[in-house]
Design a binder for these strands. Structure first.
Lengths: 271, 271
DNA sequence: GCCGCTTTGTGCCTGCGTTCACAAATGAAC
DNA sequence: GTTCATTTGTGAACGCAGGCACAAAGCGGC
């Protein structure tokens, strides 16, 4: 291998497609499914695996498909669906192929079938009880989000440390004390914990959630959480998002300044 | 450069480190800077292009470094910093190398220098005025976030369609009407728009923000926005995040069921 | 001043995700 | 039944990003 990588045609042409914003996933540890491969132990299995990035997109497809179903559509082509979801159609087909072969060549996909398969794959056929910790501005908003967007994520527990809040119902669920996280989560079989506390409290809260049997954590606090191997963490960081945008503003401004202040044009014009 | 790199292979080892949750970025279009290599107007831009994923991590490093600086640290090693940020030390060094060479071999990095360089690169030396559209639960929370986490992102405008809200100050800024987005944004030189409206309104709001000169959009509404080439969009989608977590719960449950019901309990529990 | 220790900066390799392009499959037309 | 138009499913290529391991570069001790 190696050796001269001859030029393949194209040189690509840089599509510059504006990636419209699939939230994307982590660096894709490629989450695997079952396993089967009779291997021995914990060493990650081969088996079929769905890249995390694809999982994120599946969720988007699901939303688009649900909307289409409501409008009475019964079938869609990959072209159609990929346009609505803002991705390339080949990527979409590959993503769907992770679910199995549910399309009909020459025709497209049946909307209902696809919805069902995606829901099954994403585990949306079960309920996932959610706890929100930290009933400040954000936590309040999350608790009121109304059973959480879409189906299947009922908020079953709220926690805060403020004595004035304890017992007060928010969005129909009374607030419990931070100290009771472990017990309450275990009792109510919480599977997803949402951390909306100040950064200083986040790690402690996280530890308690884990102790209470929570398997997945959605973290809004700007800290890097330490968790045991078997717990899944996703992070939503407002400051980071803004700073990334800031970077793009700056980049663009620099580019403009370099390439010709004002529309005057003037020189340089590199590249 | 140079000769014979013997076999440093090692070739494997697969650490399988649990990526703890850098929010990560999109599929990294690797934003590039112009160039202007020579002609050092000042000490500016390195011309190099920084992968978007690296930009996201730089923001995390910045936070960690700020915390360290507050505690009086003056230097850090890549090992130290990478631990706190939850990444591999080699990756960290590579990320920092995009900024230029600001470390001292055998010693480490000067905290203050690093903070300064990251801030400069991320464009945090300028102010980025923010507008929040949709003052519901979430928008309210965002508006109250107190000038937004960290420095440099003052909320300068709020918008909603509810007549009862117009004129009411939230977090110190009075709410304007949706119809005035274009004008107000232009007047106040808003550079970042945050969309926290119901999905149905999001595209219209987005169009108005763009018309008002907004260059970057942070979208909390669960829709794929269509924007012109020059506008940058980042999406935060709660439903998607939850569904990804749901997927992991399901995956784990399946794996467990398949691989052998751990610790006694033989029921398979096929849903 | 030399040596050895520490830590950075980076070339190289590997693997993953995206994309292209095409064969296979299907339905419709005749 | 055969042919044609469509659209899926996927093998292969490509490029980026992550990670390892090492050379280069300072610092401190002797």
């Amino acid at each position: 291998m190696v050796a001269q990588r001859g030029r393949h045609n194209g040189a690509a042409a840089h599509k510059r497609t504006r990636s419209p914003g699939v939230p994307d996933a982590d660096n894709a540890p490629t989450a695997e499914l079952p396993a089967v491969a009779e291997n021995g132990s914990d060493q990650q299995v081969r088996a079929r695996s769905i890249p995390e990035a694809a999982v994120a997109r599946l969720a988007v497809y699901l939303r688009v498909l649900s909307a289409m179903a409501e409008q009475g559509a019964t079938t869609v082509s990959s072209e159609e669906l990929s346009n609505s979801a803002g991705v390339n159609s080949a990527k979409l087909r590959k993503d769907l192929s992770y679910l199995g072969s549910y399309g009909t060549r020459g025709v497209g996909y049946e909307v209902q079938v696809l919805v069902g398969q995606i829901e099954r794959t994403l585990g949306l056929t079960r309920q996932h009880r959610v706890a929100v910790v930290g009933i400040g501005n954000l936590g309040h908003a999350l608790a009121n989000y109304g059973g959480f967007p879409g189906r299947g994520f009922p908020v079953e527990a709220l926690f805060d440390i403020d004595p004035d809040l304890i017992g007060v119902p928010v969005g129909g669920v009374p607030v419990s004390h931070l100290d009771d996280i472990r017990q309450v989560c275990a009792e109510r079989q919480i599977s997803i914990g949402v951390i909306a506390t100040p950064p200083a409290a986040a790690q402690t809260v996280c530890d308690r959630l884990v102790a209470g049997g929570v398997q997945c954590i959605l973290n809004f606090a700007p800290v890097v959480l330490q968790v045991p191997e078997h717990v899944e963490v996703r992070k939503v960081d407002l400051a980071v998002e803004l700073q990334i945008l800031s970077f793009h503003v700056a980049r663009r401004a620099d580019a403009e300044a370099a390439e010709g202040p004002v529309s005057g044009n003037g020189a340089v014009m590199r590249s």
